[in-house]
């Protein structure tokens, strides 16, 4: 009896929790259909499909979104390569200082973003490096490297390395073994980590706020400024479209992995 009550309470909290998580997202989606009066799309005035029919009429929004996508691509690619290399070194080899490297990897993720952002901004200032697209990409690559290295490391732990020995026994050289055996094996894990890095980068605000140049507004920076200036419904449309696309990509990956497991 008490066990059943316990389960009912649990289910209720879970349901409420999911409601809490999705309520603001529902607001974002609903307001893509709003016909705003004035500059702020924050009060409901009436239903319209206009915003969805004209998603690209704001060149300023398009430009910032495109910049965010480019930064995220650079960061995810650079971090994907460097992070995977670090993870391979840590899992496959034993050497002095491995523990130290592990600490170095965790630290950026346990440092508040405001500290990362202000310290990087200071470095760029001290060295006379002008803040630009590339300073944003450098900063994003930094936290993505840590993230990729840690997640790929966790994946590599359960791998069957005897396959490499088998390839070597069959006469494959080190490079051929890597490209034909090791790399295809680790690729799904690396891609998953790179995709999540992309998501982290495209939505980063606090660090970017410190290291972005005057003219290099990313989408989050634009939204932050827009909250004070004007908030067009196209911002909601873009976010909703991105959400739908990434959920579809996620679902497709999961389905693909399942079909391969069968």
């Amino acid at each position: 009896m008490r066990a059943r009550l316990f389960r009912a309470v649990l289910a209720a909290v879970t349901l409420a929790g999911f409601g809490f998580l999705f309520l603001p997202i529902a607001v974002i989606v609903v307001f893509t259909f709003n016909h705003p009066v004035g500059r702020f799309n924050l009060v409901w005035h009436g239903f319209t499909l206009d915003n969805w029919l004209h998603p690209f009429i704001r060149p300023d929004i398009n430009a910032t979104l495109w910049r965010s996508i480019r930064v995220a691509s650079v960061a995810a690619a650079a971090a994907g390569v460097m992070g995977t290399m670090v993870a391979l070194a840590l899992v496959r080899y034993r050497f002095r200082g491995g523990a130290l490297v592990n600490v170095l990897l965790v630290l950026p993720l346990t440092t508040p973003e405001i500290v990362l952002g202000s310290s990087l901004a200071l470095l760029f200032l001290n060295r006379g490096i002008e803040r630009s697209f590339w300073t944003i990409a450098i900063a994003h690559t930094l936290f993505c490297v840590s993230f990729v290295a840690i997640t790929v490391k966790a994946r590599l732990r359960g791998m069957d390395w005897t396959l490499e020995d088998a390839a070597m026994d069959l006469g494959a050289g080190p490079w051929r073994t890597f490209s034909r055996v090791t790399f295809p094996l680790i690729l799904p894990g690396v891609l998953a980590a790179a995709l999540l890095s992309f998501a982290l980068s495209i939505d980063d605000f606090i660090i970017t706020y410190f290291v972005a140049g005057e003219g290099d507004t990313t989408f989050p920076l634009y939204v932050f400024g827009a909250f004070q200036r004007e908030l067009a419904p196209q911002v909601n449309v873009m976010s909703t479209a991105l959400l739908v696309l990434s959920v579809a990509a996620l679902a497709a990956t999961v389905r693909y992995q399942r079909s391969r497991l069968r």
């Binding site: 603001p24 974002i28 939505d203 939204v223 909250f227 911002v235 959920v247």
Partner: peptide, 21 residues
């Protein structure tokens, strides 16, 4: 998977949504 979905929409827009709510 649903727990991760909020990460796929802008963190700032979700916070702005709370000002509406």
């Amino acid at each position: 998977g649903l727990v991760v979905v909020p990460f796929l929409t802008s963190f700032l827009l979700r916070t702005i949504s709370w000002t509406v709510l």
